[in-house]
């Protein structure tokens, strides 16, 4: 479903992503891990469209997308959650999620202003869909609260719900567990597992191997812009190159064991 072919992106002479290829089949939850500076965030931005590669191709459902803008990719069915939670302020959790419906609805200024038929056709569908994903993300309690007043864990879930409201074929998650502890972390992991059971294709960028092991089907490990290993979580954890990369760069960081 998602194919990356020999992608290259450099910043001032440093090859942040240096010939990365990977392929995520339909229905798989693929994790992309690596120590700080491995190129995960750059690779993520290449897939979202916030950065363009210098070389290589990105295909989504056999269509080349590496030159398309993020909004166009969103319309093709690629949804994103950011590492820094970016909820829309001054809106409730439910309204935030409803924004996600933009990709499959049409009614515009004039239709909304004059309350033309399409507004009345679409608005209940948007609300219904948003309520459904809010429930799926376990946020019923928070639906009508201002999004910015929610605890961090719930804000992350709202972000995921907003992405789900667009009915994505592919969900890209940038470090969804960053800053979460104990209970919040477990809830997030359960949500991701549920989505995986529903066969939603996901690409998860993560720092922490222990979190990834619990949810991912397969793991791709990056270091210094290269893929150094790929396999099931268990295979990857036993891989020499992976252990070296993590110990070599983040000795005191505790990333291997989880933070």
């Amino acid at each position: 479903m998602l194919e990356l072919e020999r992608l290259v992106k450099s910043f001032g002479g440093v090859r942040a992503v240096d010939g990365v290829s990977l392929s995520v089949p339909q229905g798989e939850l693929r994790a992309l891990i690596g120590p700080n500076g491995a190129g995960k965030s750059t690779l993520f931005s290449l897939v979202t469209g916030h950065l363009r590669p210098e070389q290589g191709t990105i295909s989504f459902e056999s269509r080349q997308i590496e030159q398309l803008r993020p909004a166009v990719r969103a319309r093709l069915g690629i949804a994103i959650t950011f590492q820094t939670v970016r909820l829309f302020r001054g809106m409730t959790a439910l309204e935030n999620v409803m924004v996600g419906a933009h990709s499959w609805t049409q009614h515009e200024f004039i239709e909304a202003a004059l309350r033309l038929p399409r507004h009345f056709r679409e608005e209940p569908k948007i609300r219904e869909r948003a309520r459904a994903v809010i429930a799926r993300a376990g946020l019923e309690h928070w639906a009508d609260s201002p999004a910015e007043s929610l605890p961090l864990g719930q804000q992350r879930s709202v972000q995921i719900a907003r992405a789900l409201c667009s009915n994505p074929k592919l969900l890209l998650l940038d470090e969804p567990a960053a800053g979460l502890r104990g209970e919040e972390r477990r809830e997030l992991s359960e949500l991701l597992s549920r989505l995986r059971e529903e066969k939603l294709t996901m690409l998860l960028v993560e720092h922490d191997i222990s979190f990834v092991s619990a949810v991912a089907d397969r793991v791709t490990v990056l270091d210094l812009g290269h893929v150094i290993a790929e396999g099931t979580p268990a295979e990857v954890r036993g891989n020499e190159a992976v252990i070296d990369a993590y110990l070599g760069s983040v000795a005191g960081d505790g990333a291997v064991t989880g933070s």
Partner: peptide
């Protein structure tokens, strides 16, 4: 709030 997040949301 965020043009980038809005655009990524479609």
């Amino acid at each position: 709030t965020s043009p980038a997040a809005a655009s990524a949301t479609g």
